[in-house]
């Protein structure tokens, strides 16, 4: 938890230093981490890219209704970081946990069989991708190296 919180605080410090209104990080596994400031509180949420708009919309609605127990946030007024653990016993969290358990049950019941992959096609694709990326990387890096020498 401490490590997780330390990383978040670094991003929150960055957010404050640059005077940002929104900050989004997107990762290769199609997940995102989002920071935003609402009523002097810097919220952070994370999830899958496909749920990005929905989660942000929910956050804004919850913040407008002050229903924020289930969010981690940094309070600029009190200069304090509120973790999910600090609100674990709230009724909102209990409700969320119940819903999550239900969803997990449902997810297990509708789990699909893994799709069969054509190995040869995959291998060909990998080889083509590596060639293109290697070439691009060499060119991009040489541009930056040349920037320095110029």
């Amino acid at each position: 938890m401490l490590e997780h919180q330390e990383v978040l605080i670094k991003y929150i410090d960055f957010f404050i230093e640059k005077d940002l209104q929104n900050l989004t990080l997107n990762f290769s596994d199609d997940s995102f981490l989002y920071f935003t400031i609402i009523n002097e509180r810097i919220f952070n949420i994370h999830g899958l890219a496909k749920d990005y708009a929905k989660q942000i919309s929910e956050l804004r609605e919850d913040a407008a209704n002050n229903n924020i127990d289930s969010y981690e946030y940094y309070d600029l007024k009190n200069e304090s970081f509120k973790t999910k653990e600090s609100v674990t016993n709230s009724s909102t969290i209990k409700k969320i946990k119940e819903v999550e358990i239900d969803n997990n049950d449902q997810a297990e019941s509708v789990e699909e069989e893994p799709r069969e992959i054509d190995e040869e096609e995959l291998q060909n694709f990998r080889e083509r991708l590596v060639l293109v990326l290697d070439k691009a990387k060499t060119v991009f890096d040489s541009i930056n190296d040349n920037d320095e020498s110029n």
Partner: peptide
């Protein structure tokens, strides 16, 4: 100054 702990593909900022 973007923290490097998380290796991300894109970073979006809004001022």
């Amino acid at each position: 100054g973007v923290p490097t702990e998380l290796n991300c593909e894109t970073v979006e900022m809004e001022t």
